[in-house]
Structures are given as C-alpha cells and as structure tokens.
Amino acid sequence: MSEFVYLTFDGLSRGLVYAAFALALVLIWRAARIVNFAQGAMAVSAVYVAYSVTNATGSYWLGFGAALLAGLALGVIVERVVMRFVDHSSPLNGVVVALGLVLIFQGVLGIVYGNEFLPFETPFSRDAFVVGGVAMLSRYDLFVFGTVGAVVIALTLLFTRTAVGLRMRAAAFAPDVSRLLGVSVGGMLTLGWALAAAVGSLAGILVVPTELGVHPTAMDVVFVSAFAAAVVGGLDSPIGAVVGGLIVGVLLSYVSGYIDVTVAPMAVLALLVVVLLGRPGGLFSSSKARVA
C-alpha cells in the first residue's frame, strides 16, 4: 500500500511536468497547427540559461526567472525568424523545420557547454514526507504542484477571461475572419509561441534537476512522454494536455515501480495505441472538423 501511495504521488508530480510540456505543444498546435518538435531543444536551451545565471549569481530563483524570460524570447525569435516563413500548405514542412531547429539548438549547446551532464540542484528537498510510515510528497513535489497549477489557472483565465485570450482563440480558429474584426493575427501567433515556449521552459527547469542534469538532449525523453500526453488528451485541448500528462506520469510511475523501468516506454506506446484506437482525436477532442 505504501509503495502504491508513493508511486501515485511520484507519478502525479512527474505527470504535472509532462502536463506543462504537453500544454506548450497544445498551445502551438492550436495557434499554428504545428507540432513543435523543437520544443524540447528550446526548453533545454532555457535551462542552460538558468544554469548559467544560477552559477553566476548563486540564486536558483534568478536562474528560474531567466529561464522563463529566455523561453519567451526563444518563442518570439523562432516564430518571427523561422516559422513565419515556412510554407504551411503541408503540415510536414513545419515538422521538418522544427526537427532542423533541434539539430541546430543541440549542436550549438554542445559546442558552448560541452556534451557532459552538468549538475543542477533543486531549490527544495526531494525527500518525501513520511506520514504514518507511508512516503508521500516531497517539498519539491509540492513546489511542482503549485507552480504548474498556477500556470494552468493563469492560462485558463487568460483564454477565458481576457480580450487578448479571446483574440488568440479567434486568430487560431479563423485567421481571415479575425483580421476583419481587427485582430492582429500575426501578433497573436507570436504571443502564442512565446507563451508556449515559456511554459515549455518551465517544464524543463522543473524536470531537468530531477534527472541526470543539464545536457543538450536532456528533454528528449520528456518530449516523447509529453507528446504522448498531448495526443492522448487531444492535441486541441488544454484540459486534455493536463489530464493526458497526469495519466502518462502515473502510468510511467506504476510500470517503473511494479514491473521495470525499461518497460515504461512500451507502456506509453500501448496507452497511445489503446486511446487512438478508441478515440482517434484523443480523450478530449471536441470535434472532427479541424484537421492539419
């Protein structure tokens, strides 16, 4: 029982990171109909910024803030300098360009920082509280819960309660109609990329210190899990991304804990197959009207 409780909390904590990363993928998919395969490389770039700032100042929190700002800036740059000029007549074009960006980001990071894992500490202890002999959440897990929860609430309020959020939704759904209504579709697209990249960077800075450390490919495995989470939830659905992230996180935790960690990727694949066979649009897909 105690193992089950521990694995559940551990899975939820990790699942929230996947949720944040999946949310970043969903934000860009909704805005631009592109699966941003460069999201992991962009996030790890922001984590390197955090690593450098934290080492230079001794403050984790300055590094944390710098990573979010770097994420915002990277989102703007990638959209304005690269993605805006991609021919979107085929969805594959955006995918290929994003994969090219992965090679560039990872290559440059390797040249600048080397290809060794660099240690990056968490700001809070990862030792779980023990309640009645059962290991529960750690302080760091609570930090992850609080941070991702705040981001999800903030994004929900942005999209449902603000004029900017309304215009972002409109621009994503029908760009030409939105332009007629005075919406700057290009501006909304840039904002969408910036927000998504910042959320992806947040996921990066939350997860990288809990693994082997900072490395140009540190987010590759996280990307695969988060992409699976986004697809399971439905690429169009922010709620689906969060639920999908939690499902994938808990599944990976149970499979790693009860069976073997090497089987975990197979479990995610099996989950994808089952969900896509039952609901090809994902668990929270709202309609079949929109295709890439």
Binding site: R169, D176, V177, R179, L180, G182, V183, S184
Partner: peptide
C-alpha cells in the same frame, strides 16, 4: 484586413464565418 476595424469599417460575410468553438 486587420486595419479595417480601427478605421471604422465592418463587414459581414456571406458564409457567416463564426467561431464555432466560442
């Protein structure tokens, strides 16, 4: 197109063109 609204020009569309997700 996106300057029309600022200039005080509004247009309806033949095909209605509403955002069905809203």
């Amino acid at each position: 197109p996106h300057h029309l609204s600022r200039l005080g020009i509004a247009r309806t569309l033949q095909g209605v063109g509403q955002f069905s997700g809203m």
